[in-house]
Design a protein around this nucleic acid. Structure first.
Lengths: 145, 145
DNA sequence: TATTGACCTAAAGTTAAGTTTAGGGTTTAT
DNA sequence: ATAAACCCTAAACTTAACTTTAGGTCAATA
């Protein structure tokens, strides 16, 4: 049983953010004692899930939908599972995308190391993938493919 | 040599976005013929870099800084390289974070499969990591550690 | 010649996810 | 009993990255 200030400490989230989450419906059944919110285990777990779903790129509105399903009991298990499956696929795709971004960044790091060594970009700008070191060529082609 | 409409087609970016990028200083030396923008190879490459840096989480302002460095010539190679190194580290960290999010999502998918099978969450809610299947326990502990 | 289509600018509007402000209540330490 | 330290709400403000709107230029086409 925590106050909003204690939860704020616990998660490193501003009090204003927790109030905002509540206003957006992310704690559908939170208890209050003379107006004061009582965060108990259900809300604490909700915050853990919120943090995870947010990091996965989900919007507050959709997280609210999930929290409503939780409040509705066992008849929504399948919907909740589908939501996590969907989100998992989306994060997997995002990681794939990030790896291609990483390839581009690796290539650019190499590019500027060479540019510094040579004092200009003339050779680099006309360079074909075949003339790059193998690992750089890999990165270059993954990023530009 | 492309018009803004052709570039829009080429990259699948709205014309309004390209104008916005220009207004924000992302094409520092773009040429114009009687007011009309002329996108040539330099700007096309700039857009490729913009897309990459945006996906890596960089803000327009910082991308503008990079474009200004590019316009300043060889004396900024080191600054440009540092920027890409920094961004690479940041994307690597982001991917690490995403993998932990993935662990949480995998755990939740398993959780709801079990909940559907059992019709309720009673057993799951009191389950200790030791009682989970090995791969799920891994995910659970990575996500909650 | 008139209209269509592609270009332009400046400025206002949009959206998400908060944050800040203003005003007020309640419990606790001095 | 008064000030400090919490809690509360409603509403306005913020920020980034666009998007939309309103009004205008110019070239080619029917």
């Amino acid at each position: 049983m925590y106050t909003i200030g204690q939860v704020s400490q616990l998660f490193g989230l501003p009090v204003s953010t927790l109030r905002y989450y509540d206003k957006e419906g992310l704690f559908p059944n939170i208890k209050r004692v003379s107006g004061v919110r009582q965060f108990d285990e259900k809300e604490i777990e909700a915050i853990r899930v919120i943090e995870c779903l947010k990091k996965s790129g989900m919007e507050i509105k959709e997280i609210k939908q999930f929290m409503e399903w939780c409040a509705q009991g066992p008849q929504t298990y399948a919907l909740r599972r589908e939501l996590f499956l969907k989100q998992k696929a989306s994060v997997e795709a995002e990681i794939e995308r990030m790896n291609r971004v990483l390839d581009m960044l690796s290539y650019k790091c190499w590019y500027y190391e060479e540019a510094i060594r040579e004092g200009n970009e003339a050779r680099l700008q006309s360079m074909q993938p075949e003339d790059m070191p193998e690992s750089i060529r890999q990165a270059y082609e993954n990023a530009h493919g």
